[in-house]
Amino acid sequence: MDHTAHDFDPSVEAHHAKPNTRPIFIALAWIVGITTLEFAIAFALPHTMATLKNSIFIVMTILKAFFIVGEFMHLKHETKGLIWTILIPMALLIWLLVALVTEGSYIGEAIFNR
């Protein structure tokens, strides 16, 4: 947070700093590329490879999340403490997801007696 250092200075308006947008567009290229690839994989791979397809989708989604959170939300450039404060609770949610999806299969088995 360095902007508190700039005090209001009307002369700033006269000569703007050059925009630094390169990292933004690199992140954009990655996200668009990954989404296109996901779209292609959804139709290119046969439905018999469902597990492989879904694993690829999940890995690609996490990769996209990395670019959005890391670059757009600037988390990559924050302090380590803030990064871990956000990431550790999110990582625990993966456990919740796996546990409850497994539970869903058991409920289904109990209902349909598969």
Binding site: I86, P89, M90, L93, L96, L97, S105, I107
Partner: peptide
């Protein structure tokens, strides 16, 4: 950031419910 973290919990609960119901 902390608000968004709690909001992420809500959406994670939604998507987890989707996973559970789909498997069920």
């Amino acid at each position: 950031w902390f608000f968004l973290l709690t909001d992420a919990f809500t959406f994670a609960a939604f998507l987890t419910t989707y996973g559970l119901m789909r498997q069920r």
